[in-house]
Design a protein around this nucleic acid. Structure first.
Lengths: 407, 407
DNA sequence: CCTATTTACTTTAGGTACTAAAATAAATAA
DNA sequence: TTATTTATTTTAGTACCTAAAGTAAATAGG
């Protein structure tokens, strides 16, 4: 299978156009050649040529013409679509005490999903790698029937990750640091392994929604046990020099303020994350029993209920959280000037209780000229979104190789 | 001069390669065809073809072979270089009470520079436009002899500008807001008018220096009367949605802190800018008389001297400024994770007095994992750098049209 | 039912741009 | 003077892409 003639073709336009066609089909579903041409700014003659190749490689299929609705006059469009089984990807979301595995097909659709409860904080780097290998192997033997190949694996991890080197630098779900997780899996499964920050995965899904199509500069803030952020600049996640950009949760609200899980004081996370809210509340309120350092969804909902029902202590706690969040967002507006800030994550459950204080903090912090025209919105949270984003990103990253492999 | 045949050539590679050659010649000076090929990843046959066109258009010239040092064996290289007079650009720096005009040639060299003292805060938008027209006209009649064309004009302005719309949204040098300055000049002088933030111009110059060549993600903080910032992401200035990104000076140090020129409280600028330092000092110290709301270089140097000589009040003021700056930089590190933060501007004169407090504030604010490997350095300040950067940016932006015009 | 019209897709002809290799040019080393 | 080395130019061939012409497959209307 060795490739001998690595021809130094300088003209990448065919390759680029082919990828554009594949991505258009994935993003928008079945389409006719003419439309693919218009959408991508190439002639339909070129699309004919590209689709002939893809058809021959088995990466797309022609959809049989539908009997009803041959839309108007003229020769009806022949729709082409991605062959779902041409390849698949596996995305693993790693969060505190839970691992989720999702299988997606070449068309980007979810084929299988499973959750496992695992004490992630007890794992060593080695035992985590072994665990991941096992789970992926299991999923592969059960679910990969019929797929031509496993194109890639995505690890969506909370915390600071370096995608280039495949290293988890620091994650709240893990008790160890600087673990190069990608390499072993790549070798074991002979495919690309993408390491992604979970917030970037979510942002990718949200940015693809039509409602946010006009926001190339999008900031997504994830409230939850901790606080994460993703910044899309012209639609692509901003990573910074080592992948530790967009650490909103540890930007500062108050020098010498509340203690944060990171060990420093005054971080936004130390006011507005689940653990911070619960910690502040547990001192003064009757709340469900449980691990108050890692409050459960149930515990958090009880606290949120109190605030929304008018309990003054709970209200004060959420007001202070909203204020910290607002000042933090003000810095994000001053520094990134995005089109839109979306607030999501499991912590949006308490957003209504924080919103007023948040907005007045932003107004206190910034004059209109600096605040700009940025919209600030919250957005419902679904725990499957992370893996959907991971699948989309992985398919995108591996299309080029799928193309080669099917050549 | 109407262009009839807007040929829909889809292949932009010739155009791109031609621009790459021009830019290489501008950045690195005279070069041989072989080297231009290697540097840009194209074959020397292609460079031959491109340079033949450019030669014919008068945009480059062949440098006569030098008698000494024909370096070794083989046919000697024939160097080609940009024809300096093929075009010129004018850059105008607009700062408080001063306007600087600089003329640069096609090769990027400064040909002429002049300063004017103007009470900028007294101007209306209209009188500023008239003034700029006059000054540019004068410079054109005096200095533009021999140039084939005026390719572009750059307005380098302190404050928030929207480059796309050519509008100065807010500048500390001007008492009016939302002024569309580009349009009138573009019409009057029949050329592109770039509106740029002054910090972006500086950053462009610094990023081109070999010492910082390995820092594609570069943050430049400009200390002075106010505090500005420029963020280069992969070498290109980050603008945000309306051009008001990177407003570091108005990011927050302390909620409800010191009063800032913007009208809000707690901005970094309200602690570490010239006016803030002088304001804090004037309450307790004997300082040279003058407008203490707009301290002169002389006044600031007197204050800096006191701090460096050990005056405890002055030292305390610079310590607090350093701390504010440090917390602000910590947020920049958390959010942008750059390779390097460079601190410059006229305010670097006081950097030594702030440095210690700044570094300990950063260490207090961020754990090592989040601080990353970012270097933080200061860098000498030269008031001509802004216009040099403006000239470089303008030439880059107008090359494409110069190419067309000389076709 | 047949023909004109409309729209989609395919084929053909022609152009642009690139590269590798061959040819040419201009120097030094021996 | 000749061989060698390096730079530039020319030549030949390839890979794209597009416009335009040709073909296919439907509807609309006599």
């Amino acid at each position: 299978m060795a490739i001998f003639m690595a021809l130094p073709s300088t003209d990448t336009s065919r390759h680029d156009n082919t990828l554009a066609v594949i991505r258009t089909l994935r993003d928008r579903g079945p389409a006719a050649r003419v439309d693919l041409g218009t959408l991508n700014g190439i002639s339909s003659a070129t699309v004919t040529s590209i689709s002939a190749e893809l058809l021959q490689q088995g990466l797309i299929t022609e959809r049989p013409p539908e009997a009803p609705r041959p839309n108007g006059r003229g020769r009806p469009k022949t729709l082409i679509e991605l062959a779902p089984d041409a390849a698949c990807v596996v995305c693993i979301k790693l969060s505190i005490n839970e691992i989720q595995l999702v299988v997606g097909d070449f068309a980007g659709q979810v084929r299988h999903s499973e959750h496992h409860t695992v004490s992630t904080l007890m794992l060593t780097a080695d035992s985590l790698e072994t665990l991941l290998e096992e789970k992926i192997s299991a999923v592969c033997t059960q679910q990969l029937e019929g797929f031509q190949r496993l194109a890639g694996i995505c690890l969506a991890v909370q915390g600071v990750v370096s995608s280039q080197s495949g290293t988890v630098i620091w994650s709240p779900a893990l008790s160890f640091r600087n673990a190069p997780l990608s390499a072993r899996l790549a070798e074991r499964f002979h495919c690309d392994v993408l390491l992604e920050n979970d917030a970037n995965c979510i942002a990718r899904v949200l940015a693809a929604q039509p409602a946010y199509a006009d926001c190339p500069n999008l900031v997504v803030i994830m409230l939850g046990y901790g606080i994460g952020m993703s910044v899309l600049i012209n639609g692509v996640p901003f990573l910074g020099a080592n992948g530790s950009a967009a650490e909103f949760g540890h930007s500062k609200y108050q020098p010498d303020g509340a203690l944060c899980a990171c060990g420093r004081r005054g971080c936004i996370e130390a006011y507005a994350s689940d653990y911070a809210l619960y910690r502040a509340a547990a001192e003064h309120l009757e709340l469900p029993s449980g691990d108050s350092a890692h409050p459960s969804e149930q515990q958090m909902q009880a606290l949120t209920q109190l605030a929304l029902q008018g309990n003054s202590v709970a209200k004060r706690i959420y007001t202070e959280a909203g204020q910290a969040l607002g000042y933090g967002i003000a810095n994000v507006l001053a520094l990134f000037n995005p089109d839109l800030v979306l607030i999501t994550g499991s912590g949006v459950r308490g957003f209504d209780a924080m919103q007023t204080a948040m907005h007045s903090a932003i107004d206190d912090a910034l004059v209109a000229e600096l605040r700009g025209t940025t919209r600030i919105e919250s957005c419902a949270w679904d725990r499957d979104m992370t893996c959907m984003g991971g699948i989309a990103m992985t398919l995108n990253a591996t299309d080029s190789q799928t193309l080669l492999a099917s050549g």
